[in-house]
């Protein structure tokens, strides 16, 4: 449905998007994730045809954006980040205008507008000027205008930005519903948002795709080799608990949380991080072995948990790694 091939765009000397390629099949909800300034909006603007890329091609429902922009744009419903709408119009007037622009025949316009208003919970607000509506309602009008012509592809740039928690829940529900019948591309800088709504995650940073995989796969890949955090009290017979832990099969490395060794005396709690050796046969959950080892040596434990290496961490690693900000030479 959406096919993006080596997109590149620069503004003056700043390279906003250097190389973005991905391909989304029909009926998928995909998330475009990246920090602010990663090139998300620029990428989306090239996909929707607002900006012409310096290089690369965009194909929407088999229509090439460079060759036949008008037909390609017909297949997209787009909600830009700030949901810009003519403030003097009412939601109903605005949707009627959009329906005309997208060439919906006159006899089908009213039912299309009613349907969009209903799906976005706008029925009571349909005849108030948009300029008088709250940010949440304006966002909904933007959403309604993205679906009024029932396009196969829907692109939403930061759809929950600036909404209150209950509106975020409603929007999430709507995105889930739309995902059943449409191909959705949603951008966000909030990982949990994307993780909840999207089946696939494309991580973009500094103008490049850093990861592109199904959400489940990314989550699983991260939990394969978890580490443990343990807080343990030494005794006079065992002044160095780290040595006991190091002896457990499958342990790769023990790190102290405090940077100074001075704080680790025999009568204070030692907070240690236990890393798993991924090559050892005894990988996976080490908590039981740690508890048994401590019990055998008569050591007290007051905290023991498996570190949940979240997507968040990987996200941070991915976007912080590699090259510094780019400039065209």
């Amino acid at each position: 449905m959406i096919h993006v091939q080596s997109l590149r765009k620069s503004f003056g000397r700043v390279l906003a998007v250097s190389d973005v390629s991905f391909s989304l099949p029909k009926g998928i909800v995909a998330g475009l994730l990246g920090p602010n300034g990663a090139g998300k909006t620029t990428t989306i603007r090239m996909i929707t045809g607002f900006l012409t890329p310096d290089q690369g091609t965009v194909t929407i429902a088999d229509q090439n954006m460079n060759a036949d922009a008008i037909n390609a744009r017909k297949n997209i419903g787009y909600l830009p980040e700030s949901a810009p709408i003519y403030p003097e119009m009412t939601p109903r007037e605005y949707l009627a205008h959009r329906a005309r622009l997208f060439g919906i025949p006159r006899n089908k316009r009213n039912s299309a507008i009613d349907h969009a208003l209903e799906r976005c919970w706008l029925n009571e607000m349909q005849s108030r000027p948009i300029g008088h509506l709250s940010k949440g309602y304006r966002q909904r009008v933007g959403l309604a205008s993205a679906i009024v012509h029932n396009p196969p592809v829907i692109v939403l740039d930061e759809p929950t930005n600036g909404l209150d928690p209950s509106q975020i829940l409603e929007t999430r529900k709507l995105m889930h519903e739309l995902g059943q019948t449409h191909t959705l591309l949603i951008s966000s800088h909030i990982l949990s948002e994307i993780q909840l709504t999207c089946q696939r995650i494309i991580i973009i940073a500094r103008g490049k795709v850093r990861a592109d995989a199904p959400t489940d796969e990314l989550t699983q890949a991260q939990s394969a080799s978890p580490s443990c955090t343990v807080e343990i009290l030494p005794t006079s017979t065992t002044p160095d608990p780290a040595a006991i832990l190091r002896a457990i099969p499958g342990v790769k490395k023990i790190t102290r949380f405090s940077s100074t060794d001075a704080s680790y005396t025999t009568d204070t709690w030692h907070k240690l991080k236990v890393d798993v050796d991924p090559d050892h046969s005894n990988t996976g959950d080490l908590r039981e072995s740690i508890a048994r080892a401590a019990f055998k040596s008569g050591l007290l434990i007051r905290e023991l948990h498996a570190e949940n290496v979240s997507l968040e961490r990987m996200f941070l690693e991915l976007i912080e790694a590699e090259d510094s900000p780019q400039e065209i030479q």
Binding site: R45, F50, I70, R73, Y78, P80, I85, R98
Partner: peptide
């Protein structure tokens, strides 16, 4: 100024 140009230029209109 309002940003509605983005909606206009992404519509199927030359």
């Amino acid at each position: 100024r309002v940003g509605t140009i983005e909606m206009l230029l992404t519509s199927p209109v030359s």
